[in-house]
Computed example of a mutant assay.
Amino acid sequence: MITNAQSRTNIHEIAEGIYRINTPVDLPNGLGFSFNQYLVVDDQPLLWHTGPRRMFPLVREAMATVMPVERLRYVGLSHFEADECGSLDLWLAAAAEAQPVCSQIAAMVSIGDVVDRAPRALADGEQLSLGRHTMQWHDTPHVPHGWDCGLMTDTSTNTFFCGDLFTQPGHGEQALTEGDILGPSEAFRQPMDYFAHGPNTAETITRLARMKPTTLACMHGSAWQGDGGRLLRHLAESVTARQ
């Protein structure tokens, strides 16, 4: 559903109770790109990624078509970066009971200072119940980038909120696809590689593959459905080969 005709911001359910909010943009080099946020609607709703600060009105407008913004309870982020948490303070102002959710490192080095509301800092493997959905935190330092990086899985729908992994070019017109996203995402990564390429990069991705997710909630481009464990293993192989 298109929620803003001018920006073409749209919202679609990609798994039970999980909505992708997508805003397409055009980059200066002429390539299309997109920013996605994911809303988990539950007793204690969670927004994963805030989007850049200037997109706040668009994301808020889209959220309001599904649930009252004031109901938002958690605002999750993978790492400290504008498209992850640029509008965090605006969301906390809009939802009086909302709380940031991040890694313990992010809470210590960034989030505990840049906003006044204390974050919920999760340890590796820790779970957060939203009601019907249970989110599990995974520490992924430097994967794809950032010492403070971490990712989440909804264990009830087997949805992996994979952040910048599998970043795809284009506007992400298809909310959920079963097509190839590894090829386009790896081709997009090569000109300006955004992976940190630490000594444990492939090992970390392989560890995530063992969760065997069936839906990948990508931050840029289409969400994906299929054998997520297999696709993550192929990503680990590709990253290792290109190193």
Rank of each mutant, 00 (worst) to 15 (best):
S103D: 08
F33H: 07
P119D: 12
S78W: 01
S7Q: 11
V101P: 04
L208T: 03
A94F: 10
P141R: 12
A106S: 14
C149F: 08
D89H: 14
L151V: 13
D148T: 06
L27T: 10
G76M: 03
G30V: 09
G179D: 13
F80V: 09
H171I: 00
F80Y: 11
V114T: 11
L176Y: 09
N22I: 00
A241S: 13
N4M: 03
M67Q: 15
H171V: 01
T9V: 08
G179N: 11
Q136E: 15
H142D: 14
M219S: 11
P141C: 10
L216G: 07
T140A: 12
A121W: 06
M63Q: 11
G163Y: 04
L31R: 15
V115E: 08
Y194A: 09
L165Y: 10
G228E: 08
M219K: 08
V40G: 04
E126H: 10
V69A: 14
G146R: 06
G229P: 05
T140V: 09
W48M: 14
E173N: 14
I11D: 03
L232K: 06
Q104R: 15
R207A: 11
E173D: 15
L39V: 07
E13R: 14
E16R: 14
T9K: 05
D83V: 00
A98E: 04
V66D: 03
C149A: 15
Q37S: 15
V59I: 14
Q174G: 00
G76A: 15
P100M: 07
N22T: 00
R53Q: 13
L39N: 08
D26V: 14
G30P: 07
R132W: 10
G17H: 08
G146T: 07
Q99D: 08
C218R: 03
L46W: 02
N22P: 06
I111W: 06
F80H: 11
P68L: 07
D83P: 12
W224M: 04
C218P: 00
Q44M: 11
D164M: 04
W137P: 02
E186S: 14
P100A: 11
A94Q: 13
I111N: 02
E70C: 11
L151A: 07
I11Y: 02
T206D: 13
A196Q: 10
V239S: 04
T65D: 11
E203R: 11
D83Q: 00
T215D: 04
W147A: 15
N22D: 03
A209Q: 02
Q99I: 13
S103R: 05
N200C: 10
I181T: 05
Q104C: 10
A62Y: 03
G229C: 10
N36V: 01
Q243Y: 06
G229W: 03
P100C: 08
L47S: 07
S185L: 04
L128D: 13
Q243V: 03
A98C: 10
